[in-house]
Computed example of a mutant assay.
Amino acid sequence: MDIGIVSLRWLGHHTAHTKWTIKSLTELGHNVHLFTPKDHEFIGEFEDIERMTVCLLPSSPNEKQSPIQSYIESLFYRHRCFTEIFDSNIDLDVLHIPSLDQLQIPFLFTSTRENPPFPIVATIHRTDPFQKFKNDTVLSNKTAKNILRHPPRRVTKYATEKLVADETIDRLLVHSEQMKQRTVRKFHRIEHNSVRVVPNPTPPIQQDVSQREARKKIGIESPDPVLLFFGTLRHEKGPDILLDAAKMIKQPSTFLFAGKPGEITERDVVETNTNSEVNIKSRLEYIPENEVDLYFIAADCLVLPYRNQEGISSSLRRACMANKHIIGPESSDIGTTIEQNQLGQTFETGSVESLMENISYFLEENQKYPKKGVSSYAKEQHYQNAGKELEIIYSNL
């Protein structure tokens, strides 16, 4: 098959998710056409993929504008991108949008003006891509953006329902059963059989190094247990909760923060490093894909102090591939996944004290935790399994 993949975003999990979706398909013998902007910052991550052609779209708009201007311009820009894809004259068997979140409005506008010339498959990661979190006073400097969320939220809900109910999108994909049930409940016009659960394509650990060697490569010499926070240090991911918990830990340990700074910066991390029992290390920048494995091999435990309830972190799956223990928030998709698959522990969402207690318990009892559930879940999420399921879905359209 000739398969189109759309990637208009590349920060956070987007580049890795797109890359391993593509590899899962090319390794099955399919040809993939990647539609992505000329200014994709991490396009080099795709260089080693055979049977893939890059189809360049216009560069993304300048974000150095007011929030209202940026949002409106992004809608027109994304409409232009979809129009170019529809008019590309590439004979595709299917077009897959691996992250439809916040693209529903421009995609509906484009497909209303011009019928898509090929079947459409799209994946959503949240039922509300404009989700606002409780107690987010640290976002006060983004008040205009927060106000802007409300009209787009309603229109996005309408657009999502219409695209699927009218079969403009032939199949809607999600990555967990919880997300499927929530999608059907929230979007009343979307029927149960229109939504499919597929594995989130996750690569196995490819670096053949010991934990000690991995630690040395990333600058950690301590023999103490390492607790990893991996990803952009945004408020909804709760890095501040983990930093506050680190202040109260009594056992010798290393807390490692790896990812781009967000609302939490290098200065915040440095100022927290006052506990004599805890060593806080950080690398606050984008971690290239070929170095990601080292962080998960080096760690003993992945901590996900997330505030948001929807979505399953790509870091969780990468940690499972490395056979690591996981601590995450209860009453969330992450917490449900941890509990149902016996991946580790859950703590009370947003509670510094609860997180501290769970970390302390892990540091005392970490050798007693079975890893069977972790390895089983890792096999389910392997990118090759995702490719096989996508192949079936595409073939049945």
Rank of each mutant, 00 (worst) to 15 (best):
Ile3Arg: 01
Val6Gly: 00
Leu8Phe: 10
Arg9Gln: 07
Ala16His: 07
Thr18Ile: 08
Thr18Trp: 01
Ile22Pro: 00
Ile22Leu: 07
Lys23Thr: 13
Ser24Asp: 08
Ser24Thr: 11
Glu27Leu: 08
Glu27Val: 04
Leu28Asp: 02
Gly29Arg: 09
His30Tyr: 07
His30Ser: 08
His30Glu: 08
Pro37Asn: 01
Glu41Tyr: 06
Phe42Arg: 01
Ile49Arg: 10
Ile49Tyr: 12
Ile49Phe: 12
Arg51Met: 06
Met52Ser: 04
Val54Asp: 02
Leu57Val: 10
Ser59Ala: 15
Pro67Ile: 02
Ile68His: 04
Ile72Ala: 13
Glu73Leu: 09
Phe76Gln: 10
Ile85Glu: 03
Asp87Met: 08
Asn89Glu: 14
Asp91Thr: 06
Gln102Glu: 13
Gln104His: 14
Pro106Thr: 06
Thr112Gly: 01
Pro116Ile: 13
Pro117Asn: 10
Pro119Thr: 11
Ile120Asp: 01
Thr127Gln: 01
Thr127Leu: 00
Phe133Ser: 10
Asn135Val: 05
Asn135Cys: 06
Asn135Tyr: 12
Val138Arg: 07
Leu139Pro: 04
Thr143Tyr: 09
Ile147Trp: 14
Ile147Tyr: 14
Leu148Ile: 12
Pro151Thr: 06
Arg154Leu: 14
Tyr158Pro: 02
Glu161Met: 06
Lys162Pro: 00
Leu163Tyr: 10
Ala165Thr: 06
Ile169Cys: 03
Asp170Met: 05
Asp170Ser: 13
Asp170Trp: 01
Arg171Gln: 14
Leu173Ser: 03
Gln178Arg: 08
Arg185Tyr: 08
Lys186Glu: 15
Lys186Gln: 13
Phe187Asn: 06
Val197Arg: 03
Ile205Asp: 00
Ile205Pro: 00
Asp208Tyr: 01
Val209Lys: 00
Gln211Arg: 13
Arg215Asp: 08
Ile220Asp: 05
Leu233Asn: 04
Leu242Pro: 05
Leu243Phe: 12
Met248Thr: 08
Met248Trp: 04
Ile249Leu: 15
Ile249Gly: 05
Gly259Tyr: 13
Pro261Phe: 11
Glu263Trp: 11
Glu263Gln: 15
Asp268Ile: 07
Val269Asn: 06
Val269Phe: 10
Ser282Arg: 13
Leu284Phe: 11
Asn290Met: 09
Val292Thr: 14
Asp293Gly: 01
Ala299Pro: 03
Asp300Leu: 03
Arg307Gln: 14
Ser313Leu: 01
Ser313Asp: 02
Leu316Val: 06
Leu316Ile: 09
Leu316Cys: 09
Arg317Asp: 02
Arg317Leu: 13
Arg318Lys: 15
Ala319Lys: 01
Ala322Asn: 02
Asn323Met: 05
Lys324Phe: 04
Lys324Asn: 07
His325Met: 10
Gly328Glu: 02
Gly328Lys: 03
Pro329Gly: 03
Gly335Val: 05
Glu339Tyr: 05
Gln342Cys: 12
Gln342Asp: 15
Leu343Met: 06
Gln345Ile: 02
Glu348Thr: 14
Gly350His: 02
Ser351Lys: 07
Val352Arg: 00
Met356Leu: 06
Ser376Gln: 15
His382Asn: 07
Leu390Tyr: 15
Ser395Asp: 11
Ser395Arg: 15
